[in-house]
Amino acid sequence: QKPVSAYALFFRDTQAAIKGQNPNATFGEVSKIVASMWDSLGEEQKQVYKRKTEAAKKEYLKALAAYR
């Protein structure tokens, strides 16, 4: 399975908490809140997710090379 983006990892980590705080929110509303949070996130915090994405990408490429 291809690795997901840094934003997708952040979304996955954040979505449940947002939904818990806003139980009646639609998926679209939750998405807007998470997107706003991502935009206001500091670069250092974004780097945490970007590093996770890079590590997953390297593992994916290694597994793909081994498969071929």
Results as ranks from 00 to 15, higher is better:
16 A>E: 15
46 K>F: 00
66 A>D: 15
6 A>Q: 07
62 K>I: 02
27 F>T: 14
54 E>L: 09
1 Q>V: 06
41 L>W: 00
39 D>K: 12
18 I>C: 01
67 Y>G: 15
1 Q>P: 04
46 K>V: 03
44 E>A: 09
45 Q>T: 09
58 K>Y: 05
40 S>H: 10
13 D>T: 06
25 A>S: 05
41 L>S: 02
51 R>H: 11
53 T>R: 09
21 Q>E: 14
26 T>G: 07
26 T>K: 03
8 A>P: 03
9 L>N: 01
44 E>I: 02
56 A>V: 11
45 Q>C: 03
66 A>E: 15
13 D>R: 00
21 Q>D: 09
20 G>S: 14
25 A>V: 10
10 F>A: 00
31 S>K: 14
67 Y>V: 15
43 E>I: 04
59 E>D: 13
3 P>Y: 05
27 F>Y: 13
65 A>M: 13
32 K>I: 04
20 G>H: 12
45 Q>E: 14
15 Q>K: 09
30 V>L: 09
33 I>G: 04
20 G>L: 14
36 S>T: 13
28 G>I: 10
43 E>G: 04
35 A>N: 06
30 V>Q: 05
57 K>L: 04
26 T>E: 08
1 Q>R: 10
67 Y>Q: 15
24 N>L: 05
39 D>F: 08
54 E>Y: 06
8 A>H: 14
10 F>R: 01
52 K>I: 02
1 Q>G: 14
58 K>W: 04
26 T>H: 08
11 F>D: 01
40 S>G: 12
66 A>G: 14
41 L>I: 07
27 F>K: 15
14 T>H: 03
62 K>R: 12
44 E>V: 07
28 G>E: 15
66 A>I: 05
9 L>T: 11
35 A>E: 12
59 E>N: 06
2 K>A: 06
33 I>T: 12
30 V>K: 01
63 A>L: 04
55 A>S: 11
19 K>D: 00
45 Q>N: 06
23 P>S: 05
43 E>V: 09
56 A>H: 03
13 D>P: 00
27 F>P: 15
34 V>T: 03
10 F>N: 00
68 R>T: 12
16 A>M: 04
56 A>M: 10
52 K>A: 04
30 V>P: 01
60 Y>E: 14
26 T>P: 05
42 G>Y: 03
36 S>V: 07
25 A>I: 09
59 E>P: 10
58 K>I: 07
13 D>W: 02
28 G>M: 07
20 G>N: 10
29 E>M: 02
13 D>K: 02
60 Y>R: 09
39 D>A: 11
57 K>P: 08
10 F>M: 01
39 D>H: 10
30 V>T: 04
12 R>P: 00
6 A>P: 13
52 K>S: 08
52 K>D: 04
37 M>K: 13
40 S>L: 06
67 Y>R: 15
11 F>W: 08
33 I>E: 09
10 F>D: 01
28 G>W: 07
21 Q>L: 07
28 G>V: 09
16 A>H: 10
15 Q>A: 03
15 Q>I: 13
1 Q>D: 15
8 A>M: 15
36 S>A: 12
8 A>V: 09
51 R>V: 10
5 S>N: 14
47 Q>A: 09
5 S>G: 10
3 P>F: 14
65 A>T: 14
25 A>Y: 10
17 A>D: 08
7 Y>R: 06
65 A>F: 09
44 E>K: 13
28 G>Y: 03
37 M>R: 12
17 A>I: 12
67 Y>C: 15
45 Q>V: 06
